[in-house]
């Protein structure tokens, strides 16, 4: 058994479209222990979903391409792995909870069948009764009465659908769950419920998780480690505690994210924002990608910064801490 569950090294992913090549992920390195929870934070287009899809090798066919780097999942080299091997891993070792439960379920199959399908695929020896039992079990675990398994997705509410999606992802007890903004499409009251459920099941099944989100509050609630992505790079990585209780040693972008959270005790009339936009992902940039928007930018920022450890286990990619 490998000592790390997931080890991503220097990963670069390009989307080759007819118009241009989009550099979605650039030299990303991440690692995850068994049973650990990592929050992957960043704004839209930072490459979070792309990273998740690449772990499952589900990048859009013929468009998304792993340009360089390596991904090792539970001792398997994903980049080199054959499609058959990947099919074995998907749903069984690694599974994904999708962003939009409204469209993530097949509208013409009963939810029970959709859960059972994963079991059938990965446990060909299980009898129908055993599969049926496991499905009932899983449905109860996510809080849906098992007798509703004969119903179709349109007969469930959004939150219920997300519970089904979670059940599909967890039914084979994978070692890693990739939760791609699992609560974004749900209303706020359901969000907390859903995160609680995911977290509970994760602990119960001893599953590691990468939680993709742009909500730092969610990360603080559920994760042990945080990785902040910006323009396809990981610019900050460390234990939740170090980052949330930081002593002024954050990356300026992460600091900006924190400042953008409205505070109950402040008298400010307007929210802090980070001016500007992410750089055009079709251009290959040389220096620090955040430099254009950074208050602290200097000439030094024209060269690319390296990851540096600013406190124990807490890494920042910024020239401020050279």
């Amino acid at each position: 058994m490998a000592d790390k569950l997931l080890e991503i090294k220097d990963l670069s992913i390009n989307y080759n479209t007819e118009m241009a090549t989009v550099y979605a992920v650039n030299g990303l390195s991440l690692s995850l222990d068994y049973g650990e929870t990592l929050g992957l934070v960043g704004e839209t287009g930072a490459g979070k979903t792309t990273t998740c899809l690449s772990v499952m090798k589900l990048l859009p066919e013929g468009v998304g391409e792993i340009a360089s780097g390596s991904i090792e999942l539970d001792g398997v080299d994903i980049v080199k792995a054959h499609e058959d091997k990947m099919r074995e891993l998907r749903g069984h070792t690694v599974s994904m909870i999708f962003q939009d439960p409204m469209s993530a379920l097949n509208p013409v199959m009963t939810v029970g069948d959709q859960i059972a399908e994963v079991l059938h695929e990965h446990n060909p020896n299980m009898t129908r009764e055993e599969v049926g039992k496991a499905v009932d079990n899983m449905m109860e675990m996510v809080g849906i009465p098992a007798n509703r398994k004969v119903e179709y997705p349109h007969q469930f509410s959004g939150g219920m659908k997300q519970r089904i999606v979670i059940a599909i992802a967890l039914v084979c007890r994978p070692k890693l769950i990739l939760a791609d903004e699992p609560t974004t499409a749900l209303d706020v009251t359901i969000q907390a419920q859903m995160l609680g459920l995911i977290h509970e099941l994760q602990v119960e099944l001893n599953t590691a998780m990468i939680l993709v989100t742009h909500d730092l509050g969610v990360v603080a609630q559920t994760c042990e480690k945080v990785a902040v992505m910006y323009a396809g790079e990981c610019i900050e990585y460390g234990p939740c505690s170090a980052i949330f209780d930081s002593v002024g040693n954050l990356h300026p972008y992460t600091q900006g994210l924190f400042d953008a959270i409205p505070k109950l005790d402040s008298k400010a009339r307007r929210l802090e924002t980070i001016d500007g936009m992410m750089p055009d992902p079709t251009e290959k940039l040389q220096g620090c990608r955040f430099a254009d928007r950074c208050k602290h930018a200097t000439d030094k920022c024209k060269t690319a910064p390296q990851m540096k450890e600013v406190s124990e286990g807490h890494f920042v990619k910024c020239h401020l801490y050279d």
Partner: peptide
């Protein structure tokens, strides 16, 4: 290219 097709792929089915 529907989402549920991606879900199905993520299940590892043929």
């Amino acid at each position: 290219r529907q989402d549920y097709v991606t879900t199905a792929k993520a299940k590892g089915i043929s």
